[in-house]
Amino acid sequence: MSVALLVNPAARGGGHTGAAVHAADRLRAHGVKTAIISGGSAAESTELLRAAIALGTDAVAVAGGDGTVNLAIQEIAGTGIPLGIIPSGTGNDFATALGLRELDVTAAADAIAAGTTRTVDLARVTREDGSSAYFGTVLASGFDSKVNDRANAMRWPRGGSRYNIALLLEFATLTGIPYEVELELADGTREHVAGDLVMATVGNGRTYGGGIPICPDADPADGLLDVVLVRPAGRLRLLRLLPRVYAGTHGTIPEVAMRRVRSARLSAPGVTAYADGDPIGALPLTIDVAARALTVFAPPAQPPDG
């Protein structure tokens, strides 16, 4: 087997080149032909990855976090080329969804060398101009996309705590946003939601922001997406409810609505959505499930906690 191992030195929090070199050495020790590819920008990394795929690499691996994984899935979604992840980024929520979060670099490389794969869903975003992109974890819009804006501008601290601090700071200016939401539910019926929302979130995976279970029941292999809509409440009330969000028990809060959907269309003025931690487009956007679109090297799926 030959593997193209992508590392993006422009990724937030550092280049993770040490993890890439360690993983490459481990893969080669297993007899896996491994080439490290690294661009100075997301665009350059994408071009190098496309070249490796055109040359016939058997698999793609990523040493980094959700943003670098996102670069890879744009190129291999629907191709059958398997993806391996060496989770070493600022946020590793997609790796978490695949059961890889607790693996060290050696174990993650060993999982690739073992060759065990399964297929999972992706979510597909279609913009108003007809262009589209995939994401693996969660699309955030509204309050949580503003949190992403703030977190991305912060140089300290690294890791998930940066997102948590940005979240608390954004509470100071929290307001409702007028949304129009169109949902195609799991049973094929449709639902329309109009009015002020604090946020509208669409999840293929359970977590974002380095482990926050915003879509606690999401399963990236069930052929559906999970939508979480939050209506306005007083700042102090929402602040008191934050521990429920971190525990994944916010579904019973009156201001929170959760739906299992095949697709969702989100519209709101002046809102840019984030997916896999990076901007993906201004609303309105349509998000639908791309069932079984990605093959991954991963341990067998485990039942959810509880």
Score class of each variant (00 low, 15 high):
residue 181 V to A: 08
residue 199 M to E: 10
residue 104 D to H: 10
residue 251 G to H: 11
residue 216 P to T: 07
residue 163 Y to K: 02
residue 75 E to N: 05
residue 123 A to S: 04
residue 65 G to A: 01
residue 57 T to D: 11
residue 70 N to F: 00
residue 210 G to F: 08
residue 38 S to P: 06
residue 140 A to R: 06
residue 170 E to C: 09
residue 51 A to S: 15
residue 210 G to W: 06
residue 98 L to F: 11
residue 61 A to N: 03
residue 244 R to S: 15
residue 59 A to V: 00
residue 24 A to Q: 13
residue 147 V to A: 07
residue 64 G to Y: 00
residue 178 P to C: 10
residue 128 E to A: 15
residue 198 V to Y: 10
residue 283 L to H: 06
residue 141 S to P: 08
residue 64 G to S: 02
residue 128 E to F: 07
residue 206 R to Q: 14
residue 143 F to R: 03
residue 78 G to W: 09
residue 104 D to K: 08
residue 82 P to T: 05
residue 189 T to S: 07
residue 113 A to R: 02
residue 258 M to E: 10
residue 48 L to G: 07
residue 144 D to L: 08
residue 109 A to L: 05
residue 255 E to R: 11
residue 163 Y to Q: 02
residue 37 I to H: 03
residue 4 A to V: 05
residue 60 V to T: 03
residue 300 P to W: 10
residue 175 T to G: 12
residue 80 G to T: 13
residue 38 S to M: 09
residue 25 D to H: 15
residue 74 Q to W: 03
residue 164 N to P: 07
residue 290 A to N: 11
residue 68 T to N: 01
residue 91 G to N: 07
residue 33 K to P: 05
residue 268 A to Q: 06
residue 235 R to P: 10
residue 8 N to E: 04
residue 267 S to H: 14
residue 177 I to M: 13
residue 306 G to W: 12
residue 296 V to A: 07
residue 275 A to G: 11
residue 183 L to E: 00
residue 249 T to W: 12
residue 244 R to M: 14
residue 286 T to S: 10
residue 135 F to A: 01
residue 90 T to D: 06
residue 5 L to D: 01
residue 276 D to W: 04
residue 98 L to P: 02
residue 304 P to Q: 04
residue 172 A to K: 14
residue 65 G to I: 01
residue 186 A to I: 06
residue 217 D to Q: 14
residue 28 R to Q: 14
residue 303 P to G: 01
residue 278 D to A: 14
residue 302 Q to A: 12
residue 217 D to G: 15
residue 235 R to S: 11
residue 229 L to I: 09
residue 73 I to R: 00
residue 139 L to K: 04
residue 197 L to F: 05
residue 294 L to C: 03
residue 19 A to D: 07
residue 11 A to M: 04
residue 106 T to E: 14
residue 163 Y to D: 01
residue 215 C to S: 04
residue 287 I to N: 01
residue 10 A to K: 09
residue 266 L to W: 08
residue 26 R to K: 14
residue 272 T to P: 11
residue 152 N to Q: 14
residue 255 E to L: 10
residue 76 I to P: 00
residue 127 R to N: 04
residue 11 A to W: 01
residue 253 I to A: 15
residue 298 A to V: 13
residue 234 G to C: 12
residue 15 G to E: 09
residue 294 L to I: 03
residue 127 R to M: 05
residue 193 V to H: 12
residue 285 L to P: 04
residue 44 E to S: 14
residue 39 G to C: 09
residue 59 A to D: 02
residue 235 R to I: 12
residue 197 L to W: 04
residue 37 I to A: 02
residue 123 A to E: 00
residue 132 S to K: 08
residue 227 V to T: 02
residue 26 R to Q: 11
residue 232 P to G: 11
residue 14 G to V: 09
residue 50 R to A: 15
residue 43 A to G: 13
residue 254 P to V: 09
residue 173 T to Y: 12
residue 58 D to T: 12
residue 85 I to Y: 06
residue 260 R to I: 07
residue 282 A to F: 10
residue 147 V to N: 03
residue 139 L to H: 04
